[in-house]
């Protein structure tokens, strides 16, 4: 067995070794953790803004929302769409379709921005639309588009002189109503009117009538 001094020396020698070992382990961990934290920080800076933006995008009314549908200004989603005319009425609850219809209407207002007194202007545009030449469509008959503007083989088109009421209803009961007469689209709430272009009308018709009407 060791004597007193040997024991004491051994105690302090082992203590020093343990302290050195502890410092070495601490440095090793730091050497590992600091680059790791740095990588995480860099990745967050790169990817986090994109991740933050995407949820925000889905909340704005004019962004495409594949899952949830389009929202009104209060943040409620439009859950139903209805189109009425003197002859017929149809409704749709497919959120994707409602969103598509809504986006076409919004794009019409965004791109074709006219004042309230747009009727005089639009009378000149009427001649561009084939429905002027097809009064029989008012009765809901199928009409093949032999006209220039409708070459897609659609069964029907918007009837001339017929006012279509397009109503979007949100899940909180809030409604927004548009009136489409010939190629004039009017927002009943804001009294804003625009002339819908041929392409927009075509798109709108496709989305509204092909899905909701089927064959008439």
């Amino acid at each position: 067995m060791r004597n007193f001094d040997e024991r004491k020396a051994e105690i302090f020698r082992r203590s020093e070794n343990r302290i050195k070992e502890r410092k070495r382990n601490r440095n090793r961990i730091l050497a590992l953790c600091v680059p790791l934290c740095l990588c995480i920080a860099i990745l967050s800076v790169i990817y986090l803004p994109d991740m933050m933006i995407s949820p925000d995008k889905s909340n704005t009314a004019d962004e495409m929302n594949m899952a949830g549908g389009v929202e009104n200004s209060s943040g409620f989603v439009y859950t139903s769409f209805e189109i009425k005319s003197t002859k017929t009425a149809k409704s749709d609850t497919d959120k994707q379709n409602i969103e598509n219809i809504y986006n076409i209407i919004q794009s019409a207002f965004t791109v074709n921005d006219y004042s309230d007194d747009v009727e005089q202007e639009t009378t000149t545009d009427k001649s561009e639309f084939p429905q002027e030449q097809k009064p029989s469509t008012q009765k809901g008959e199928s009409t093949l588009k032999g006209e220039d503007n409708y070459s897609t083989g659609l069964v029907e088109s918007f009837s001339k002189g017929v006012a279509y009421t397009l109503t979007f209803t949100a899940d909180n009961g809030q409604k927004i109503v548009y009136i489409l007469c010939d190629n004039i689209l009017t927002n009943e709430t804001t009294n804003e009117s625009v002339t819908v272009t041929e392409d927009q009308l075509k798109d709108l018709y496709t989305k509204v009538f092909t899905v909701t009407y089927g064959k008439e």
Partner: peptide
């Protein structure tokens, strides 16, 4: 084992220091 016991006692005292 007296030697092992001494060793262990040294470790225990070194715990007091560390």
């Amino acid at each position: 084992d007296i030697h092992a016991a001494e060793d262990i006692a040294i470790d225990a005292f070194s715990d007091l220091v560390v």
